[in-house]
Write a protein that binds this DNA or RNA. Structure first.
Length: 663
DNA sequence: GAATCACGCATTTTT
DNA sequence: TGCGTGATTC
């Protein structure tokens, strides 16, 4: 299908958004309203009008959506067309590429490292121990969260986000500058720094900013409701003065305030850009009528939102089913049984089902019950492959090889595998480095400890090997062999099976790396960037197998024919801890709304009478959101006479549709 | 440096 | 309840 046909098929609002290419525009894209389609067709249209692809910048939050967007734009324009020159990028990778070219202007070397969360935690723990600050009430991860919030809200004026009654307030006043100083000394940036430092770069070097402003004449931002204050500032800087800025988002799906997202960015768009055109997309192409009625009714209870009502021409469809289980085991069994029945009797593929929950911990019981019934499933989220100790160790080697100033990586692996560099020796070296104001690595080099010197020689040797651009796999394999990492793993774990598994992980990691590299060879710094930003341009998108188990947060952006939202109980949704913080009950309601609007044809809401919490069973109470549901669109299903659905002709008709859709 | 134990804590997560 | 951390001990 060519572009013009594609445009002709859009609904009037979508078409308006696509054809309006100049000036600021807010596309208020309701759930399932064809948002991605609008963005991609709009981009293709822009290019088709003669705009050069290098003058267009599209910003997303995840690499996955960036890749998806590139793919769709290039398929709209036909092959060989501009895919490579079009800048579709995440906030972080955009900033990273800007900073790599301009590192010296903000006091960094261009081989700066990117620190992930665990690197950040190490920095904080080191500072705490340096200043001999011991207080169990101040945990590194709580401090980190606040530091991140501080950076994301007001990095330049160092505005403390806490009230001065908060016990963490004073700690943060001391730690924040120290943390910033330390990371800079280590020639490292954390994820927040990537954005913050870009803003600073632009503030202090208007000429550099101007260059980028001239380059990016048309800017699009996806998921605008998730932008935080610094991302907002960045976009504002870049869009000036043309303001050909198209932001797309849905304030009702803003569920990341707790990590700094500022829904005010979308709510205030018209105030910030007075000439803005606002286009609401309210026709929903995903869900049937009753599901949308439930979604609309619930979300209307939020006060701070932009008014919109989703509608569909699909008809009412099945009612939203509500199941009250006796306890969490019953809930999981019931859900698994329902899936089994629907799958077998109505021949719905398992891939059409999703079970959603507020917290990943809840996946356990569902997994067990699905296993019981031999139903295949995929759990999304949880701890990442890259968080494993053995993978982190190897990555620490690579990071140190790429940036010897990275003392966090250095300290991680100085004695892994053991090479006679115990705590005492390392502390002496640290003191020596501090006293002489030199990098720790240089203190190792200059030390009269042969182990320390040998270690730096090893790193230097591999620095040469990796920078020569030789085969990455060979270099890695040889490094792992030279340090005898496998032997170390065997010595670490008593059980051979566990040790073998860990070793397999390391081998698997080398394979993963190869996939990150694609056909061509890339150098170590680029590999590390891709690893840090989780950006694998060669990853083949694999269809997940079986029933999807997923948190409500992770489900944003996805859709499934049949959805179960579990644990719709007071304290879970809304979560007891969320009610008192940033987003409060309204954000919880949005999260629930996100879950509801994932469902295409059938939606179940489940909750319990009793639930085991921390080992002991206590009564659970229905979520207030259940009470907000419109009576006309819902139907209660009883455990003992669980046959209501089978008699429901609408369900049969809709199952028929699902089968058709899925071929 | 390793093994053991007690204690405390317990959303959401991408980059 | 169950895991991860940190202290304690050998």
């Amino acid at each position: 299908m060519n572009l013009q046909d594609e445009i002709n098929q859009l609904n009037p609002m979508q078409k308006k958004a696509v054809l309006n290419t100049e000036g600021p525009m807010l596309v208020l894209a309701g759930a399932g309203s064809g948002k991605t389609r609008v963005i991609t067709v709009r981009t293709a249209h822009l290019l088709n009008l003669g705009t050069s692809p290098e003058n267009v910048l599209a910003v997303t939050f995840t690499n996955k959506s960036a890749q998806e967007m590139k793919r769709r734009v290039s398929s709209l324009l036909g092959r060989g067309n501009s895919k490579g020159r079009l800048m579709v990028s995440t906030f972080h990778s955009l900033c990273l590429s800007i900073l790599r070219h301009n590192a010296k202007h903000i006091g960094y070397k261009n081989n700066f490292s990117i620190f992930d969360t665990s690197d950040q935690l190490s920095v904080i723990r080191n500072i705490l121990s340096d200043i001999k600050f011991v207080d169990k009430n101040f945990k590194a991860d709580a401090i980190l969260e606040k530091i991140s919030l501080m950076k994301n809200t007001d990095p330049i004026n160092h505005k403390n986000p806490l009230s001065n009654h908060d016990p963490l307030y004073d700690v943060l006043e001391i730690l924040y500058p120290r943390y910033v100083e330390t990371t800079q000394t280590l020639n490292a940036m954390d994820f927040d720094d990537l954005i913050v430092n870009t803003i600073k770069l632009f503030k202090t070097n208007p000429d550099i900013l101007e260059k980028y402003c001239n380059k990016y004449r048309y800017i699009m931002v996806d998921e605008y409701q998730d932008t935080n204050t610094v991302q907002y500032q960045l976009i504002k800087q870049l869009a000036h003065p043309r303001e050909n800025l198209c932001v797309v988002g849905d304030d009702d799906q803003s569920v990341y305030a707790w990590r700094g997202a500022n829904p005010g960015n979308i709510l205030n768009f018209e105030r910030d850009y007075p000439d803005a055109v606002v286009i609401p997309l309210e026709q929903n192409y995903r869900s049937t009528g009753n599901i949308l009625t439930v979604a609309n009714t619930v979300i209307k209870n939020n006060k701070k939102r932009m008014e919109k009502t989703l509608w569909t021409d699909k008809g009412l469809g099945a009612k939203v089913y509500i199941m009250k289980a006796s306890d969490e085991v019953d809930e999981a069994q019931w859900t698994a049984q329902r899936i089994s029945t629907l799958a077998l009797e109505k021949t719905i593929p398992y891939e059409s089902f999703a079970i959603m929950y507020r917290a990943n911990i809840f996946s356990k019981l569902f997994e067990a019950e699905l296993r019981n019934l031999k139903i295949p499933y995929t759990v999304i989220g949880g701890t990442s492959y890259f968080d494993r100790k053995e993978i982190r160790d190897i990555i620490a080697y690579l990071k140190l090889i790429a940036n010897t100033d990275d003392a966090v990586s250095l300290l991680r692996i100085a004695n892994i595998p053991r090479r006679g560099l115990g705590n005492t020796t390392i502390n002496q070296l640290k003191e020596h480095a501090d006293a002489n104001n030199i990098q720790l690595f240089n203190a190792f080099e200059a030390s009269n400890n042969p182990h320390a010197v040998e270690f730096t020689e090893l790193i230097a040797h591999y620095r040469d090997i990796f920078s020569s651009g030789k085969d990455m796999r060979m270099a890695m394999a040889s490094l792992i062999k030279e340090i005898d990492y496998n032997e170390y793993i065997y010595s670490l774990y008593k059980s051979n099976t566990i040790a073998l598994k860990r070793i397999e992980n390391v081998t698997g990691f080398i394979d993963t790396i190869e996939r990150f590299c694609g056909d061509g060879t890339i150098l170590l710094p680029e590999l590390l960037e891709r690893l840090a930003l989780n950006d694998n341009p060669y990853e083949t998108k694999e269809e997940s197998v079986g029933v999807t188990l997923i948190s409500l947060h992770s489900a944003k952006g996805l859709e499934f024919p049949v959805v179960f939202i579990s644990g719709v109980e007071d304290g879970i949704i809304p979560h007891k801890k969320s009610v008192v913080v940033t987003g409060g009950i309204e954000e919880e309601r949005r999260l629930f709304y996100v879950g509801v609007t994932r469902a295409m044809n059938i939606l179940f809401l489940t909750y319990t009478s009793f639930r085991k919490k921390y080992g002991k069973s206590s009564p659970s109470f229905t979520s207030e959101f259940i009470n907000e549901l419109p009576k006309s669109a819902i139907m209660y299903v009883n455990r003992n006479e669980d046959n209501a659905m089978e008699d429901d002709q609408t369900v049969k008709a809709h199952m028929e549709r699902i089968r058709k859709i899925l071929g």
